[in-house]
């Protein structure tokens, strides 16, 4: 089949990236590996002949074709099976479906009395099914840990020396390079951006706080509010640069805020699980439904989740941008 060779099709088939070299802030060095001696160069060329030269490698080509056909077939079969599955499911939007049983009925009918939350979903995820939600914040926590391992550029820190144990040495000084790049290519003094950010950031952050504090009363909660605040912080960082944000947000801030929020979350929920399982009264007042200070532990937990999420979002951005704060 002869295919059209215009820019769109070449992009579509992944041959050419129209943005390559145009949107990157810094020029990308070409990948090169320097063969250190003649033998390695020879082995390299042999290797290239065997596997790297995809154009002339018939087996590789056949394998790739087969893989694509198998993958497409697999996906089509999967969609087919699942569509048949859907056609046998209970009808959409009916009140008599098996989903609407005594479980959801109790959440709706006595959720307000038992959890104190007007927003039934919040009451459900932070009280009835709080263990899931605690697991979920741990997912976010462990994701941050993983991203920190991958992206954080640390200053050299010596391990305590032990006899006969080789100590890890860093291959190259990536930290200074990344910082230098960030200094050179960081957009500075963009007046329009700074003016707009000056207007927007306070509003965004206040809105985020509102969403968090009203998590038990209206749509929203810790996660959505925290994401809003995180977005506000990222906008501030983009407009004013790391120098300004370092004044109030460093890695220490992140570490301790996350630690205290998660510790409070963990202890509060352990208390409530423990008393619940041992059939003890928890003794936490639920307050008047509808007031800001009501619904027992839900409000403090929402604040904790909000703090964790806001810090995490900002941290992701800072790490992606220069590998630190």
């Amino acid at each position: 089949m002869k295919r059209k060779n215009n820019a769109f099709f070449r992009w579509f088939y992944g041959e050419k990236d129209p943005y390559l070299g145009k949107v990157e802030m810094r020029p990308q060095p070409k990948y090169e590996n320097k063969p250190s001696d003649l033998r390695e160069a020879f082995r390299d060329s042999m290797m290239r002949d065997r596997i790297y030269d995809a154009e002339d490698n018939a087996t590789l080509k056949i394998f790739q074709k087969l893989y694509r056909i198998a993958a497409v077939l697999f996906c089509l079969i999967l969609i087919g099976i699942l569509l048949v599955n859907v056609s046998w499911l209970p009808r959409y939007g009916q009140a008599s479906n098996p989903v609407n049983n005594e479980v959801s009925a109790r959440y709706i009918e006595s959720g307000l009395q038992e959890t104190g939350a007007v927003n039934i979903v919040t009451g459900m995820i932070l009280d009835y099914r709080a263990f899931d939600t605690f697991g979920e914040s741990n997912v976010l926590f462990i994701a941050t840990v993983t991203v920190l391992i991958l992206m954080r550029l640390d200053k050299e820190k010596k391990a305590p020396a032990k006899k006969g144990v080789p100590v890890y040495t860093k291959p190259a000084d990536e930290l200074t390079v990344a910082q230098a790049h960030d200094r050179i290519y960081e957009p500075k003094n963009d007046v329009i951006l700074q003016m707009v950010a000056g207007f927007l950031v306070p509003i965004i952050i206040i809105f985020g706080i509102y969403v968090i504090l009203n998590g038990h009363l209206s749509p929203g909660g810790g996660f959505s509010g925290g994401a809003v605040i995180g977005a506000g912080l990222i906008l501030y960082l983009n407009a004013f640069g790391f120098e300004k944000t370092e004044r109030f947000f460093t890695e220490k801030t992140y570490k301790w805020v996350c630690f205290f929020a998660l510790t409070f979350y963990c202890l509060a929920k352990s208390y409530s699980f423990f008393t619940g399982a041992n059939h003890l009264e928890s003794g936490i007042p639920l307050g008047t439904p509808g007031a800001i200070l009501s619904s027992g532990l839900i409000l403090p937990l929402n604040i904790c989740v909000g703090l964790v999420v806001a810090c995490t979002m900002y941290t992701f951005y800072a790490l992606f941008r220069k590998g630190g704060f």
């Binding site: 926590f141 840990v145 920190l148 640390d154 391990a159 144990v165």
Partner: peptide, 24 residues
């Protein structure tokens, strides 16, 4: 012993976090 030689020392505590959460 291998951990010292293969992982940056400043990231060791992150490794132990991973192991703790894996256990949980």
């Amino acid at each position: 012993k291998k951990l010292l030689g293969e992982v940056e020392y400043s990231k060791h505590n992150l490794y132990y976090i991973l192991v703790d959460l894996l256990l949980s």
